[in-house]
Write a protein that binds this DNA or RNA. Structure first.
Lengths: 152, 152
DNA sequence: CTCTCCGTGTCAGCTTTCTGACACGGAGCA
DNA sequence: TGCTCCGTGTCAGAAAGCTGACACGGAGAG
């Protein structure tokens, strides 16, 4: 069966390529996370919490690029399973700051290593200069996209 | 409310940045496609079909980065609504080559223009050289990720 | 020719995510 | 003080995607 036969215009589109890269990254992450019984969003939540303790549900949602409703579902499951703790009452307003439990931190360790290996693999074959260039390009794209949508 | 306060390590990760860029692109596309009553996957399917007429369900699925089951559901809807045609019997094997109807082609025109404007906006502020660099970087990442997963 | 793979189309069920909606707390303004 | 926003947490229903499973057709090895 053919798979990469034509490539009329899609292969020249940076948008399509971005989607392709993102998809490949997602697949690779799912692959290494599955043996740990963890999904990408699951991992994202834990990693965010490790790097920025006390983040609220809504802030976690923004950081993981899902809605706050979706993150809430995940957070309740993580809380139920003892990976995360939230105070029963909000210290201020309605915001409930979440924190990793020791169990959550322990579970995250292996996942972080696995994900880091994926990132290393992704960056293999690129020089530091190329990585910097890619970094700046992506940052520029994000900025331009956001400016045009909610900025205008 | 704070939103971009810390940035411990996430902001230096190309993987996270890739996800962020992809998310921003997705949001921007949904935004311009919504008035046309079209989702991103919907559009992807039509665009693929325009550029590579006769693609099968499975091939479309690979091109749009979804499973063939998901694409099948979409394709049946598109067929029912008269955007796409598939022969009732397979000319060879079980593969049913799909094609756009005039209606599908007409519907795609506006969507293509809308999506193109998003891509133009995304690329605004980048020189041709930077775009080429981004192109090569993304290609390299995709290649490295795939090599390590299903190649080894 | 036969037999074994591989890819395909498709049905069914489940999981994940999203949209819509509601009530509540804090900040700013009059 | 009261009033109006804005952001938040959460519940409920709907939509989109995925995994599992089945039968079928073509290609290659024996």
């Amino acid at each position: 069966m053919r798979q990469d036969d034509a490539g009329v215009d899609l292969e020249t589109s940076l948008g399509y390529l971005l989607k392709e890269a993102s998809s490949a990254l997602r697949v690779a992450m799912e692959e290494v996370l599955r043996p740990l019984g963890m999904s990408v969003t699951h991992y994202s939540c834990l990693e965010l919490l490790a790097q920025r303790p006390g983040l609220s549900n809504s802030e976690l949602a923004r950081g993981a690029f899902v809605t706050r409703q979706t993150m809430n579902v995940l957070l309740q499951a993580l809380e139920r399973d003892g990976y995360v703790t939230r105070p029963t009452a909000a210290p201020v307003g309605k915001v409930l700051p979440a924190r990793l439990t020791p169990r959550g931190r322990r579970s995250l360790e292996k996942a972080t290593a696995a994900v880091r290996s994926v990132e290393v693999r992704m960056l293999a074959g690129m020089t530091g200069t190329e990585q910097s260039a890619a970094f700046r390009s992506l940052r520029s794209m994000i900025h331009s996209l956001r400016d045009g949508s909610d900025g205008a």
